[in-house]
Simulated scan of single mutants.
Amino acid sequence: MATTIRINEDIKQLLKLKSVETGITQLDLANKYILKGLKEDDTPTNVMSISDIEAMLSFDKPEGDKNLEKLDGVSHSEVPTNSVELKKSSYR
């Protein structure tokens, strides 16, 4: 997704200098620094943090979860359930 963000001219110059110094594009550096800042931001919010989202997504592996497979069939219920949706909803 492309977007335009206005940043202070001094920050723009520092980003340009760091890009030349490291050989990393300004776009890649900006994305790196923004993501790092978002992860480290501890401002209280009602939304999930980047770390929480990453943790949730790490459970959605195509190969499945061996621990959940061990529990399969331990409990019986007449009501069908979707364990993936239940796991996702537990993070909300």
Rank of each mutant, 00 (worst) to 15 (best):
T45N: 10
V79R: 11
K39H: 07
S90G: 03
E40N: 10
K66M: 13
D41I: 04
K70C: 11
V79A: 08
T4D: 12
L71V: 14
Q26D: 02
M48P: 02
T81A: 07
K39I: 10
T45S: 11
A2S: 15
G64M: 08
L14C: 11
S90E: 06
L15H: 01
S49T: 15
D10G: 05
E54R: 06
I34V: 14
D28I: 12
G64K: 03
G73F: 06
N67T: 15
S51K: 13
R6P: 03
V47A: 07
G64S: 11
N67E: 14
I5F: 00
G73S: 14
Y33E: 13
K12Y: 05
N46R: 13
Q26W: 00
I11C: 03
K70A: 12
V47Y: 00
K32Y: 03
M56Y: 03
L15S: 02
D10Y: 05
T22N: 12
K88G: 00
S89G: 03
K18T: 08
K70Q: 13
L38G: 05
M48N: 11
T25F: 02
V74N: 05
L68F: 01
L71D: 12
P44G: 07
Q13T: 10
V79E: 08
N46H: 07
G23S: 14
D52I: 14
E40P: 04
A30L: 12
L38H: 05
V84F: 00
D65A: 09
E21G: 06
S49Q: 05
E85F: 04
L35E: 12
G23V: 15
S83H: 10
S58M: 03
V84H: 01
N31W: 06
E69R: 11
D52W: 01
D52T: 15
P80Y: 00
E21V: 13
A55E: 08
D72S: 11
M1H: 12
K66Y: 08
V79W: 01
Q26V: 04
G73H: 12
I24V: 13
E85Q: 11
L14H: 08
D10H: 03
S83D: 10
E85M: 12
E40D: 11
P44H: 01
T3I: 15
E63R: 04
L15D: 01
V74P: 00
S49R: 05
T4P: 03
L86H: 05
I50K: 04
S77R: 15
